[in-house]
Computed example of a mutant assay.
Amino acid sequence: MRFDHETLPQRIRFASGAAAAHLAAEVEALGGRRVMVTAGPAARSAAREITDGLPVVHRHDRDGDVVRHVPRAVAERARAAAAEHDVDVVVAVGGGSTTGLAKAVALASGIPVVAVPTTYAGSEATAVWGMTEDGRKTTGTDPRVLPRAVVYDATLTLSMPVGLSVASGLNALAHCVDSLWAPRTDPISQALAVEGVRALGAGLPSVVREPEGLGGRERALCGAYLSASAFASAGSGLHHKTCHVLGGMFDLPHAQTHAVVLPHVLAFNAPHAPEAERALAAAFDAPTATAGLALLYDELDAPRTLRELGMPADGIAAAAEAIVAAAPPDNPRAVTLQAITGLLRAAWEGAQP
């Protein structure tokens, strides 16, 4: 056995109902005196509540300030606001788009970020950044964008509707699955990924059954962190390369796109990655990984089609070419234009993988 595994330097504070206190402690530890808060519309109220006692000099939370896939023009406005207000800490309260915007500020300035997730996106636990311009999403890795601390509080996810909770949780599950065969996968990231599958597989059905219960949301939130930790070390596999192309090219909703594509990439790769397949099957407590995922999708009433997300049928050919060009060279199965075209058409139609 021989591998290299990088554990990212980051503190995690996990406790329901303690976001304000934990956030204040982290800002103080960073010496923050001029705080910028980023928050999208869904998290604006919660952000104002938990940051009320902080030395906030700018709230970047107006309509249009946070946009999915972080368009470059939106990122530049946030960077200019941080410079204008001489910000020394950015607090990001919200989902992946909010964290992504804070990362864009950090990438250009080195200003430290404290993330307070309200979804299961997982961006908060990685040093990966992404921005879109002219229909193309560019991603990269830089230690400056890794949030110095993450404050997890499951009560902040209670306002997330069940449908969005499901999609966001399946996005996290996709981090787990991709981490089992991504370019830098290793036994540690694989172990984190498998535990993430178990946590999400138990937590998400509980969220659907009892949306106001904290137990399921805590398990899902913990699973989201495990999944992101695995992904941070393992890197982007075929699934994430596919979704980055689709999101950037067609401006599709991030979490729902991951949820729709995941069963198709799993069915594509699993027969060619037997060890990963067995580990996933065991985590799902199912005879096969694909069967386990299918049962979970039925239980969650998960999103099924790219067509319903707004992807045009005539975009399949161009997307397939871009995905083949971006696919990792060591994917378990050869990534051909014909195969990816078929995969995308099945995902567009909502056909069985």
Score class of each variant (00 low, 15 high):
Ile111Phe: 11
Ala220Phe: 05
Ala339Glu: 14
Ala174Thr: 14
Arg278Phe: 00
Leu107Phe: 05
Ala334Gln: 14
Ala167Lys: 05
Leu214Cys: 00
Thr290Met: 06
His175Lys: 09
Leu226Asn: 07
Thr257Lys: 09
Ala24Asp: 10
Ala73Ile: 03
Gly40Glu: 11
Leu221Asp: 07
Ala220Met: 08
Val128Ala: 15
Ala24Met: 01
Pro253Met: 10
Pro117Ser: 03
Thr185Glu: 09
Glu308Lys: 11
Ala46Val: 11
Cys176Trp: 12
Leu221Thr: 10
Val93Trp: 09
His69Trp: 14
Ala39Ser: 15
Gly53Arg: 13
Pro328Val: 08
Glu133Gln: 15
Pro271Glu: 05
His272Glu: 08
Pro183Val: 03
Gly292Trp: 03
Gly342Arg: 13
Gly235Trp: 10
Gly110Tyr: 08
His69Met: 04
Met1Tyr: 01
Gly17Lys: 09
Thr157Pro: 08
Glu28Thr: 13
Ile316Gln: 10
Arg59Asn: 07
Pro71Ser: 06
Ala320Ser: 15
Arg62His: 11
Gly95Glu: 12
Ala325Thr: 15
Arg333Ile: 01
Ala125Val: 02
Ala82Cys: 06
Ser227Glu: 03
Gly223Glu: 02
Thr336Phe: 02
Thr118Ala: 03
Leu252Val: 02
Arg79Lys: 08
Val197Asn: 11
Ala43Asn: 04
Arg148Gly: 01
Gly122Trp: 03
His60Gly: 00
Pro253Thr: 07
Val261Ser: 07
Leu246Glu: 09
Ala291Glu: 15
Gly94Ile: 02
Asp142Ile: 03
Pro332Ala: 05
Ala78Asp: 05
Thr290Val: 15
Thr132Phe: 00
Leu306Ala: 04
Arg217Val: 05
Gly215Ser: 13
Gly201Gln: 02
Pro161Gln: 08
Val245Asn: 07
Ser168Asn: 01
Glu124Ala: 10
Val113Tyr: 06
Ala281Arg: 12
Ala234Pro: 11
Pro9Lys: 02
Arg59Glu: 14
Ala317Pro: 05
Ala289Ile: 09
Gly130Tyr: 09
Val208Glu: 01
Ser227Trp: 07
Gly203Ser: 07
Ser229Leu: 15
Val37Glu: 10
Ala234Asp: 12
Ala276Thr: 12
Ala228Arg: 08
Ala75Leu: 12
Ala220Gln: 07
Asn269Arg: 00
Gly215Pro: 00
Ala286Gln: 11
Arg148Val: 12
Val87Leu: 09
Ala327Leu: 06
Leu54Val: 06
Ala191His: 14
Cys176Asp: 12
Arg77Met: 01
Val324Ile: 11
Leu300Glu: 09
Pro253Trp: 04
Gly94Gln: 04
Ser159Phe: 05
Leu156Gly: 06
Val151Thr: 06
Ala42Asn: 14
Ile323Met: 07
Val74Cys: 12
Leu170Thr: 03
Gly315Trp: 04
Ala47Ile: 07
Ala282Arg: 14
Leu226Cys: 02
Val208Lys: 14
Arg307His: 14
